[in-house]
Design a binder for these strands. Structure first.
Lengths: 223, 223
DNA sequence: AAGAGTTTGTGAACGGGGGCACAAAACGAG
DNA sequence: CTCGTTTTGTGCCCCCGTTCACAAACTCTT
């Protein structure tokens, strides 16, 4: 669902992990965290797979892309594997993030505790609406959209979140890219285009519901 | 990403559309709406594909699963195609929806205009917190979680949205299923298990960011 | 030390989806 | 009516991802 594959230029010494696997690693990480909190020291691929809601063969193959971190006949060491996955997807570091658009969704995102606990730190909330500047939401300063460049360079921001209306999304994205942001999470219901080398992921709430509606309708037709 | 393929029992007279195509139909629909608003009466697969951010061959193949709604040498009639897609995914009907969990996310969802405009009507916001019952958020009554069954049967709700904390998610899902809900959109960061015949889709905000972080980290490693 | 029992890691087969490229169909000009 | 132009619908091939099934590796018991 990522807009483009990262334009690998040269070198290519880095092991590359299939996109589908990358998307599941965070799920495994969460399952491992839950197991660790419950005091589990070791787990089999079967247990972890169940906790993550996937097939155990798939889990093992996924993990095998990272290396051989399990022990045959025994299973995986929860803490060790947890660390390895976290390191691989980069959540051991600190990722400064800016959110643009302080509507209901922007609010919800700023307040979302799941970000902070995974190494994402919201450094600013930007909005075009001047009347809200200076406000503090969830401990984060609301700033002018024009401050984007300064904020990005000051904090070394690489990831931007678009929670603005669809009409503004492309503009916001262009500005982000111009400031040096190279990864964008887009919640606006519109297609945005970006140059090569910039990753875009899109989350569309109403599309998810429409997909459910399609299947729901089919279920109804069968009877 | 849907948890299970709908357990087709017998009959099977209904054309079945690949899952990947179903996920893109709402995107096409939105692009068509935009074109219609701009006064466009007809469009080629190339134009529509660009607007939707996909390859034109893929677009044509996707549309061909619905039937032959285009005219060779001319293109597609915007209004006609719009209606056909809307009918196929079921957004010409009215879909009553309940949202459970009235935190920041529940608020944002209740206020989201994109639902209403696509045939989804939020009939109730449920929360375990008694102090909030009777409140009205975005024109929707906040009710007790125990009212779920009554609300579902009164309004004929088939789709439920979970915006509750992870710890409560499985419980909420079980109750939903018990009340007859057969499609669930889960925003809680946890794996929920449901019986066959119930569709679950999952949206996890922090997972999307983690996937971006992985690619961001790799970009950094190349230099 | 050897055999029975577990569990990982992976080769191989399979299925779905993406994209190219072309035939079929419609339209317009002359 | 015929020819050239445009654009759809789709057959074909390829690649990615999923799953099965098994050999390799480790533990434990006797």
């Amino acid at each position: 669902m990522t807009a483009r594959t990262p334009s690998r230029t040269l070198g290519e010494s880095v092991r590359d992990i299939p996109e589908a696997t990358v998307a599941r690693l965070p799920v495994y990480l969460r399952a491992l965290n839950t197991l660790a909190e419950a005091g589990t020291r070791t787990c089999s691929s079967e247990e972890l797979a169940t906790a993550a809601g996937v097939n155990s063969a798939k889990l093992r193959k996924d993990l095998s892309y990272l290396g051989s971190y399990g022990t045959r006949g025994v299973g995986y060491d929860v803490d060790y594997l947890r660390y390895q996955i976290a390191r691989e997807i980069g959540v051991t570091q600190d990722w400064p993030v800016v959110i643009v658009g302080i509507g209901n969704l922007g609010h919800a995102l700023a307040n979302y505790s799941g970000f902070r606990s995974r190494g994402f730190r919201v450094v600013a909330l930007l909005d075009a609406d001047h009347s809200r500047h200076g406000e503090v939401v969830a401990g984060v300063d609301v700033r002018a959209f024009d401050d984007l460049e300064e904020i990005v360079s000051t904090h070394g921001v690489a990831i931007g979140v678009i929670a603005a209306p669809a009409a503004a999304a492309q503009d916001v994205a262009d500005r982000m890219v111009a400031c040096g942001i190279t990864s964008i999470l887009n919640f606006a219901p519109s297609v945005i285009s970006v140059p090569d080398g910039v990753d875009v992921r899109k989350v569309d709430l109403s599309i998810e519901l429409q997909i459910l509606a399609y299947h729901e309708q089919r279920k109804a037709q069968l009877s």
